[in-house]
């Protein structure tokens, strides 16, 4: 049944003289390859060259601080609950007097660990976080590790450095 007029019926009769001689088609094909020979390669030499992956790429995790430099995380555990790979674990602690400049909320994460072998970089921790504390950076990837003890990342690697703050495209 004919549904539309877009169908093109292909007639494969005898080949024409030029087609049977092969040579015109071969010369045409060789012209095409020669054109590509002189065109610019599309290769990106990865470790040396990188390209911009977009503002929503999910790379290395970061625990944000607020403008004053206090950690935003309040150790509610929602990220750990949301994590489908069960990569996140934490130990909560009550903020002592005099630590207000270090931690924004009254409860904070004394230990915050992400197992980088388990993490699947889905970004659900970022979605779950009510305090806007954890993010997956769009411009930085987790480096390759070679030893077992490099796999679990603690707060020393995760918390944002104040002299090198993370800013995503579209943030102020």
């Amino acid at each position: 049944m004919k549904l539309s007029n877009k169908t093109k019926v292909l007639e494969q009769g005898e080949m024409t003289l030029a087609e049977r001689m092969y040579l015109p088609a071969i010369v045409g094909g060789m012209a095409t390859t020669l054109k590509h020979f002189f065109s610019k390669p599309v290769t990106i030499r990865y470790p040396e060259q990188t390209r911009y992956l977009g503002p929503v790429y999910r790379g290395q995790h970061i625990l944000k601080r607020d403008e004053a430099g206090a950690e935003r995380c309040t150790a509610c555990g929602l990220c750990a609950v949301a994590c489908p790979a069960e990569a996140i674990s934490m130990v909560a602690e009550e903020r002592k007097a005099g630590e207000e400049t270090l931690y924004r909320e009254e409860k904070y994460a004394k230990v915050y660990e992400i197992n980088m072998l388990r993490c699947i970089f889905c970004g659900l921790c970022e979605e779950a976080c009510p305090k806007e504390a954890i993010f997956l950076q769009h411009d930085k990837m987790v480096p390759v590790f070679h030893q077992r003890d490099e796999v679990i990342w603690g707060k020393d690697k995760l918390v944002e450095k104040m002299d090198h703050r993370y800013l995503r495209d579209g943030w102020k």
């Binding site: 020669l34 590509h36 020979f37 610019k40 390669p41 599309v42 030499r45």
Partner: peptide
């Protein structure tokens, strides 16, 4: 040559 003809390096 194969690479250049396939737009590779």
């Amino acid at each position: 040559i194969a690479a250049f003809m396939q737009d590779r390096i």
